[in-house]
Design a binder for these strands. Sequence first.
RNA 1: UGGGGUAUAGCCAAGUUGGUAAGGCAGCGGGUUUUGAUCCCGUUAUUCCCAGGUUCGAGUCCUGGUACCCCAGCCA
Length: 561
Amino acid sequence: MSETKAPSNFIRQIIDRDLAEGKNDGQVVTRFPPEPNGYLHIGHAKSICLNFGIAESYGGSCNLRFDDTNPEKEEDEYIQSIKQDVQWLGFQWNGEERFASNYFDQLYDLAVGLIQKGLAYVDSLSPTEIAEYRGNFTTPGKPSPYRDRSVDENLALFEQMRDNKLDEGEAVLRAKIDMQSPNISLRDPILYRIRKKTHHQTGDKWVIYPMYDFTHPLSDAIEGITHSLCTLEFEDHRPFYDWVVENTSVPATPRQYEFARLNLNYTVTSKRKLKQLVDEGHVDGWNDPRMPTISGLRRRGYTPTSIRTFCESVGVSRADSVVDMAMLEAAIRDDLNQHAPRAMCVMNPLKVVIENWEAGKEETLVAPVHPQNESMGTRHVPMTREVYIDREDFREEANKKFKRLVLGDRVRLRYGYVVRATDVVRDDQGEIVEVRCSYDPNTLGKNPENADDQGKMRGVIHWVSADKGLPCEVRLYDRLFSAANPDKGLEEGQTFLSHINPESLTVLEDCWVEPGLRGALAQTRYQFEREGYFCVDQDSTDERLVFNQTVGLRESWPKEA
RNA sequence: UGGGGUAUAGCCAAGUUGGUAAGGCAGCGGGUUUUGAUCCCGUUAUUCCCAGGUUCGAGUCCUGGUACCCCAGCCA
């Protein structure tokens, strides 16, 4: 086992430097701060792994904080799912989960302090007027006529806002900074707005709610966060983040650092778009196995380890990038290859009758649970006169590269005997419905003695006893979108939804799996040999197993076979 | 258009004081194999967005370009 060295990235370098300079008393405290307005997705996993991972490797701690400053979009359902997902990934936050709303009282006092210092004022401009006064990229903003209200008047007005004396949109509290700033987020950013909505944590206590830009630096400071990691789009807000920390009396000086968010091809990682997919019924819910949500990946069969190693492998940088889905798939294949028990499942059954096998005779074959890991033990696979093989594994004729069953040739039934196809049975339409075979009783665990005459043994195929196998359902998944970037190449009137892959889900109803899987619990993962990795879906019942394809095996065989 | 960022292989990504381009994914070739899997071995950038310059020496420093991303919510 090689020592896993902490991956180098610019954030770790900053922390190393800070530690070397003795900053923050040698402490490293991070936080993962989601807004509870949706389910977590693979992009959040990157942030979670970064924040918790850094805390872990520097002997620090990481808080879970809900950034719940906008009661309009937030729900308790999201809070619960977020907590579950973080824990499932294997991380434990420091103490209880926190809420920005825990700090509403302190935030209010700090805002009053800003007013008293002449650094904040109540603006009575309408929303559209505020937008006009703000200017744009080329035009500097101009001061609101209310910008120079007296401290006393501001204090009184802010109190009226808080005491529900004003209507929504009638007034806001703004920081007094610089309406001419080339950085638009410094043109007197809004600190508080009136929202007469019941809040999932504070109920009806408040009718004014602080904005993210005001809340975040203060929450960080209150919690003693040392390194506040967020994505690139907040870069322009950093000067205001520092302004807030400098101009309020808070116990610490957290610093914000930005990294590039994760993009994956053939999917979307935007809460808004994911919510749209769910709300409009394009998928089966937030945990649809095709979704890039943590809960979707979980249902699909991804392991926490695979998601964590994936996040580690993509690294952390400041360059916009789009990670290839193949990297995610490589991570889950790697984990499951090592740990998933093997089983045989036939998904497109074709009956095979072994004519020289005595009717009614059953033989129990012994197979390893894992070919490279003896400690996982063995399993019993019943062999009978009639078995199913996959239709893809039989051809009447084929060239030498086809390593499966061909009429007249031999193939091994995995863990069992070598059989030779002798004839086919067709239905009225001429379609093959059955293959007749003979078997060589002397080939269990050894090769046929006459390998060279009478045609060679072409390969090994999987199979399931027709009498003893279990009928089951298998759900196959393809990428949710057929375009690498669903937001690109759109015609007039099209949206990312136009790129949805209509064949992202294939349900196979007539599948057969070896009987040892009877009663398998939801989430149990297997490698179906020669097919891929699958896990038991939550829709599974005692009567009927349902499997989700997590990912196929790597396939590399000659195209013209 | 003003401001803020980013450019290293098909995709991520190391490269810190200038010393002669890590690693992963994908690909390709070969070996082992009762999974066309796994595993193993080999291979894939004379060049770092472009053009100049400094230097014995530049992905790293300087100058000038180019491309792409973010910002004009009382969202986060």
